[in-house]
Amino acid sequence: MAHIIVVGNEKGGAGKSTVSMHVATALARMGHRIGTLDLDLRQQTLGRYIANRREFLTKERLDLPTPDYAELPAIAPGDLQPGQNADDQALGRAVEAMHEACDFILIDCPGSHTRLSQLAHAMSDTLITPLNDSFIDFDLLAHVDGEGEEIIGPSVYSEMVWSARQMRSEAGMNPIDWVVVRNRLGTTAMINKEKMQRAIDKLAKRIGFRPAPGFSERVVFRELFPRGLTLLDLRDIGVTSLSMSNLAARQELRELIKALNLPGVSPDF
């Protein structure tokens, strides 16, 4: 059965779709069969990313590894049994259709609390939560005091993840491997960055996640989106000399893939 990776939090602008596309493409390039779903039914950023990729590859007559992508099926009211929910049925059918054909299924969630997102979290074997490196975004995980030193209590998102873990436990499923990815890390040792590190480490032990480094803020991500490309594709499209920024970004992706520790995935690629 496919290993389900869910990329989610309840805050926009944290880089969920960038992480989703790069992780999915990295797995595809490593020879793994990967299917993707985008539960942000309004924005559909991951869906547009993959559509852009297919259009570009067709136009340029290139054949690069590309994640499969599926839309959620429409559920007619007449197809529902008493007590069934259309969102539950749509996601369940989409995942079931991919399970046997894929090694991994990656689900990109919206930056808000929805029933689809809640259900996806309960399905996740690996949960990736991108987090911008600031206390504004840290509030997604927990509330802290005015000095940013003491954790007052968990956030509603952390409670939702805890609820998803309880559902899996009651169903006899393996626990969720929760990885919090710190995006847009500063390049200098600022006081705020050090406070964030202490708060992340303290909270990781308290509510049970693994912190991992993510992506720095780089223009290249915005430049690649219209063509549906990732950092791993640059040499394949004729970019023979990578800038220091691009090389650093590729290394960040390698470190992220290693940190995820996905089953059957080599740490070196």
Rank of each mutant, 00 (worst) to 15 (best):
V19P: 08
L80Q: 12
Q118D: 15
L119F: 14
R93A: 13
D103T: 07
H113L: 12
R33H: 09
G13F: 11
R182D: 02
V6F: 14
N85K: 10
S17K: 06
I191S: 05
Q251A: 06
L27T: 02
Q81P: 01
S155Q: 05
K202V: 13
L91H: 13
R42H: 09
E252Y: 04
T58G: 11
T230F: 03
I207P: 00
I105D: 01
H3C: 13
R222A: 15
P213Y: 05
K11L: 11
R182F: 05
A249H: 08
L91K: 13
G111W: 07
E217H: 07
K205T: 06
L231N: 05
N52R: 05
S245R: 12
N132R: 14
A74C: 00
A70I: 00
I237A: 05
D268H: 05
R227L: 10
K205R: 14
G153L: 02
I107P: 03
R42F: 01
R218E: 08
I34P: 00
F269S: 09
M190Q: 10
T36N: 00
R42E: 11
T18M: 11
R61G: 02
V180H: 11
A259Y: 04
F104L: 09
T126R: 12
N246A: 12
D145Q: 05
L46N: 07
V161E: 08
P175R: 02
L140W: 00
G238R: 06
L119W: 13
A248F: 07
F56W: 12
T25S: 13
I257E: 04
K205N: 10
P263L: 09
H143I: 07
V23A: 04
N9I: 03
G13E: 06
A2E: 10
V180T: 13
L232K: 04
G12R: 09
I207M: 06
L57S: 02
V161T: 08
L203K: 04
L262R: 05
T25L: 00
A101E: 10
F104P: 08
D145C: 05
I75H: 09
G111L: 04
R198C: 02
L131I: 15
E100Y: 02
I151F: 02
